[in-house]
Design a protein around this nucleic acid. Structure first.
Length: 202
DNA sequence: TAAACGATCTGCT
DNA sequence: GCAGATCGTTTAT
């Protein structure tokens, strides 16, 4: 384990092995960190979405396991990175292996390695770094090569809790950008953050 | 092998 | 705020 930028406790497999909506809500305020090119890059998670098992029509697992979504069916705490619209989005697998459930991380507040993110993204404006799932992936330099990495044991990648940080408010809204099962409130945001992709959804 | 479809982003207005 | 770009994956011929 590399030296972290602050005193932190890594989330363990038992954190991810719970109801996906619960995990999605509790990920708000946790730190997503990736060690690249000799430094930690990441920030506080402020927006997530729950994608449930194969019965959730909006989930990539809805049509069963395929070569490209296999990571979704792996152990809880596995990283699932999928390509979309010529970009990438990242998820943390939840529940028991084989369920096909995961939490999409949609936005973080950029905190560590901001200059690295600015280089990767080609923008200096903090608001254009991590305010959306594909932007966030590019800032953290995570792509399809990182699919199936383990957030629980990988020394260079993980999600961490800061025991000294103040708890955040969490609001749930409808999920964004999907056409099926749109009515369900499975998107979770920190309403006090300015780094969410769309403050109140829609 | 062709065609359609996204859990999106950017640039321009 | 909106139209257009973009490309891997899936589904249909």
């Amino acid at each position: 384990m590399r030296q972290l930028p602050f005193k932190a406790e890594r989330l363990t497999a038992s954190f991810y092995d719970r109801s996906t909506a619960t995990v999605a809500g509790e990920l708000i305020g946790k730190a997503l960190l990736h060690h690249v090119d000799g430094c930690w890059v990441g920030g506080w998670i402020v927006e997530t979405e729950a994608y449930l098992d194969t019965r959730d029509p909006a989930s990539h697992s809805a049509r069963g396991q395929t070569p490209s979504n296999a990571a979704m069916f792996a152990a809880p705490g596995t990283l699932y990175v999928y390509p979309i619209h010529a970009k990438h989005c990242l998820n943390a697998v939840t529940e028991k292996a084989g369920r096909g459930a995961a939490v999409l991380i949609r936005a973080i507040e950029p905190v560590w390695g901001i200059d690295f993110m600015q280089l990767e993204r080609g923008y200096s404006d903090l608001r254009r770094l991590t305010r959306g799932p594909a932007m966030l992936c590019q800032s953290l330099k995570i792509d399809r090569e990182d699919d199936k990495r383990c957030l629980v044991t990988d020394p260079s990648l993980g999600i961490f809790a800061d025991p000294n940080s103040d708890p955040r408010r969490v609001l749930s809204t409808k999920r964004i950008g999907i056409s099926k099962a749109v009515h369900r409130n499975l998107r979770f945001i920190d309403p006090d953050s300015t780094s969410t992709s769309r403050p109140l959804g829609r």
